[in-house]
Simulated scan of single mutants.
Amino acid sequence: MSQSYQALAQPCQFLYEEKRSTFTAVLTPVQSREDALRVLKNIKQALPGASHYCWAYIVGNAAQPKLVAFSDDGEPSGTAGKPILNVLTHRSAGDCMAVVVRTFGGTKLGAGGLVRAYGASVSQALDNAQWREVVPQLSLVVEVPFAFEQKIRLALDGQGAVVDDVEYADGVSLYTTVAYSKYESLQDHIRLLTSGQARVRPLDDK
């Protein structure tokens, strides 16, 4: 979970048609299962009366997701939810809920046709998507003797780490947040600056 990744930044949608059936792909940023279920409920209310509301979501980095789920919502097994999820994964669509609202046009598409239609609707919606970069952060505490406080503050600033809080006791404890990718180099740098007199640890590491 330490690598930066792209995440959906704004909702978007695309209307795909196949043999008079319509497939409206609605993409929405989500960060939890609860977010995804809320989105699904809202879409059902906004677009009532459809034949199927098939969906898939990825929470977190699409390459190493925290959560994934999908549903065929009554379509033949494997023809809707999984193809939607496959497209999201292939396109690295992190923190994304995709709901495809199908209105039946009177002509059956067959399993292969459904897979293509659901996948294509989401893929073309993703062509219009806007993205943001998510840089996972790590909360740290740096414990040092008083004499090193200013040096450590400068070192943290040089890594883009903001000091959130400070405690003074036998020494100084600086609470900060830094990108995961910079943690090891920052740790090494601080130990070098203090000749090994500093302790750098994640806040959840006692």
Rank of each mutant, 00 (worst) to 15 (best):
L138A: 08
P136K: 01
S121R: 01
K108L: 14
G81E: 07
K66R: 10
V87Y: 00
K82M: 10
L109I: 11
Q124I: 03
G158P: 10
L109K: 10
S71V: 09
L140D: 14
A169R: 14
V163K: 00
A125I: 10
F146W: 09
Q150F: 00
E167S: 12
E75M: 04
A93V: 12
L138E: 12
K151E: 07
D73G: 07
W131Q: 15
G110P: 07
S123T: 13
L85Y: 05
T89L: 03
H90S: 12
S121E: 07
K108I: 10
V115R: 04
A93T: 13
A147G: 02
P145H: 12
E75T: 09
D170R: 15
S77A: 12
K66I: 10
S121G: 09
L140G: 13
A63Q: 10
F104K: 10
G106I: 11
D127C: 03
V68P: 03
A125M: 05
G105H: 06
D127R: 03
L126M: 14
V99Q: 09
G81I: 07
S121I: 08
L156K: 06
T103F: 11
G106W: 07
L154D: 14
E75A: 05
V135H: 05
Q137E: 09
V87W: 00
M97N: 08
V87M: 01
R153V: 14
V166P: 01
A117Y: 01
K66C: 04
Q159E: 08
V101M: 02
Q137K: 08
S121T: 13
V101L: 01
G81H: 04
S123M: 04
W131L: 12
A98Q: 15
V172I: 14
Q150V: 07
I152T: 13
G113L: 05
A120D: 10
D127M: 03
A69E: 12
V134Q: 07
A93R: 05
A111S: 08
D73L: 03
A125H: 06
S92A: 11
I84K: 03
F146L: 13
S92H: 13
A80R: 01
E75I: 08
V134S: 08
F146T: 11
K82Q: 09
L88M: 06
D73P: 11
A93W: 02
L67K: 12
K82S: 04
V163Y: 01
N128P: 05
T176H: 03
L109M: 08
S71M: 02
W131S: 15
G171F: 10
A62K: 03
D73M: 06
V134P: 06
R116A: 12
L114T: 14
Q64E: 10
N61D: 15
D127K: 03
D170G: 13
A120N: 13
A161N: 07
L174K: 07
V166R: 09
G113D: 08
M97Y: 05
G119A: 06
E143A: 11
M97K: 07
Y118P: 04
C96M: 05
K66P: 00
E143I: 14
I84M: 04
A147W: 00
A62I: 04
Q64T: 13
G81K: 02
Q137N: 05
P136R: 01
Q64C: 06
S92K: 11
V135F: 00
A125G: 06
L138S: 09
L126E: 14
L138R: 15
A98W: 08
T107W: 00
R116M: 06
V122P: 01
